[in-house]
Design a protein around this nucleic acid. Structure first.
Lengths: 231, 231
DNA sequence: GGATTTAAAATGTGATCACAATTTTGTGAT
DNA sequence: ATCACAAAATTGTGATCACATTTTAAATCC
């Protein structure tokens, strides 16, 4: 899988009045999150430039940014790829998510007002709809929006970029989660979170967030899924 | 302070067989960490290129990487600077450090062997020496090395890049800490940490790390220092 | 004098090019 | 077939250039 594996990337919407570099970044960011680029697959500047029909320069910049964010990895001698996963690393990423996101949720709780709560409820409804339609990509996207809305309620938030980095590192492997979610009864952790917010109960909110993250990554406990993770 | 404030950057050691981009990155990374670039000061590619006597290209790449790491901030319309600090943000950064580094320390503890412990003791001795010599820059550097040595003992570490990002964001303001450290009696938190490691006591280690971070940032509680922070 | 407009200088973005280092391919021997 | 090795193609790095946008300055007006 070092080369020649064809990759298909869904192009981000080309907003006018935005730099090409930014557009390339958004496109690749999404591709990584959706697992459209196989881990270990060598990425070259010129190949991506051709694929996206832009000059190599914006690709170069986007690749460096994504590498700094942990979405990509620069091999020993300047070759870039989506990092390969290991069982240990996956576990560490999940534990880091729980710690960091519990912290972010607790800090943000005092700032979640009625309006914010209403937006959260709306997102949760959309998630239910996407789940009913078996639309895993939107479930993932909306789930992230749910969490992001909570954390960024804090006006002096500093952990969101770190959390996004963890999401990026887990992203390529979460499609395995989406495939097996419905196979298991899942308690609605978002409802628990919303209830905790209404009661202004920091501990209950942390517990709900932690449980939600654990549920979302539970697929890694299934041997067959774990194997796919590492392939 | 938008422009024309002259800045002096100590150049990193120019290791042969390393890319220019990497050297520029190291140089600017250090400059930010040591507070050599005033927050809010506009940085231009060409100015830095002239200062470091390289072409604009490597500077461009380094700036983008540093921005992705939170060391620099890209203003509304493409102007880059060291982010300005606020009291609230400073507090959030410190709390994030405590949460994340406590977590990292606890995770790493089982992997800290005799050899690692010995290295930690050696670093601690160096810190005492640097403190005796009133060498704040080395105190800062060695203190980071102490923490990094603990966290990276874990072979599947994933939080170190996130921690480094927080260090970078606090870096420009830690010189204010170094100036006022000796004014207050300080309990040696590193000794507490070493003791906790020897006893394999996770909670005690977390407490020592948290206290160490708090002590190091306590200067922000002094009104006059806080004012300097925000200038 | 101080605010507003206008001209000049500087800047980021993106494209193209040269080159050394790396990777891949092609060739021949075992 | 498998491996070793040399030739060819590809790649990342870094430099330079053009241009639209922004910033800075000078000039004008109240």
């Amino acid at each position: 899988m070092d080369k020649h594996t064809p990759i298909t990337i869904t192009l981000a919407q080309r907003d006018e009045a935005v730099t090409i570099t930014r557009w390339v970044y958004d496109t690749l960011h999404n591709a990584v999150l959706l697992g459209q680029i196989p881990p270990g697959r060598a990425l070259t500047i010129r190949e991506l430039a051709g694929l996206l029909e832009v000059s190599p320069m914006p690709v170069r910049e986007a690749l460096r940014q994504l590498s700094a964010e942990g979405a990509l990895e620069i091999q020993g001698n300047r070759r870039v790829m989506v990092p390969r996963m290991t069982a240990m690393k996956f576990n560490e990423l999940v534990e880091a998510r729980i710690t960091l996101e519990s912290h972010a949720a607790e800090r943000a709780l005092p700032y979640i007002d009625k309006d914010c709560l209403q937006r959260l409820t709306a997102i949760d409804a959309e998630i239910d709809e996407a789940e009913a339609n078996s639309d895993p990509e939107n479930v993932t996207r909306l789930n992230q929006a749910f969490h992001r809305t909570i954390y960024t309620a804090h006006p002096h938030q500093v952990t969101q970029p770190l959390i996004e980095s963890l999401w990026l590192q887990l992203g390529p492997f979460m499609r395995l989660s989406a495939e097996s979610l419905d196979e298991y009864y899942q308690i609605d952790r978002h409802q628990e979170a919303l209830a905790a917010i209404e009661k202004h109960d920091p501990l209950a909110l942390q517990m709900a967030i932690a449980a939600d993250i654990r549920d979302g990554c539970a697929f890694a406990k299934i041997p067959s899924k774990l194997q796919q993770l590492l392939n």
